[in-house]
Amino acid sequence: MTAIFGVAAGIAFLGALGVVVARRTLYSALALIVNMLALAVLFLLLDAQFLAAVQVIVYTGAVMVLFVFIIALLSPGAQERLNPLELRLIVGVCAALLFTVVVVRLTLNGITVTPSGHFHGTIGPFAPSLVDRHGQVEVLGEQLFTTFLLPFEVTSLLLLVAAVGAVHLARGHGRRASQ
């Protein structure tokens, strides 16, 4: 399991780097797809089967296809060269390194995990074994429709709003066109 984690995490990390450093936009998109697929594997490792499926279907499937479409539409061949001495780049990288180190350090410092794989402190009722016994989707669905019903419904409304907004924006200046 540790080996699987190592490989998947490495691929995810490289994919993430690839998104930022690739010169061509299309390569960035492909690197992001790689990253997301690796992330789906990591979700499986974390006993989140349903999320792994959603990750592949929604993200890698729908969202990234949309991205590739737009890239093809707008700038199939655009390239961008990064100037390594640019102040913004240096500041950004330094801040990112600092951020990573501090947060990881804080995580190690503030949160302890017992050898049996549990946190100290409050532990929820959904142990992985229990979730597996009842079925991942069933437990998640029950949670969504009971405890998290309101956020769930609000999210559906958000999706509707986004769809309407996208249609409006895609129509361009509809008012002008109609005149």
């Binding site: 913004r88 500041v91 950004g92 330094c94 801040a95 990112a96 600092l98 951020f99 501090v102 804080l106």
Partner: peptide
């Protein structure tokens, strides 16, 4: 955004 991010990191530190 760069300034914001840098100061956020410093604040976290």
């Amino acid at each position: 955004a760069t300034v914001f991010f840098a100061f956020a990191a410093l604040a976290l530190l």
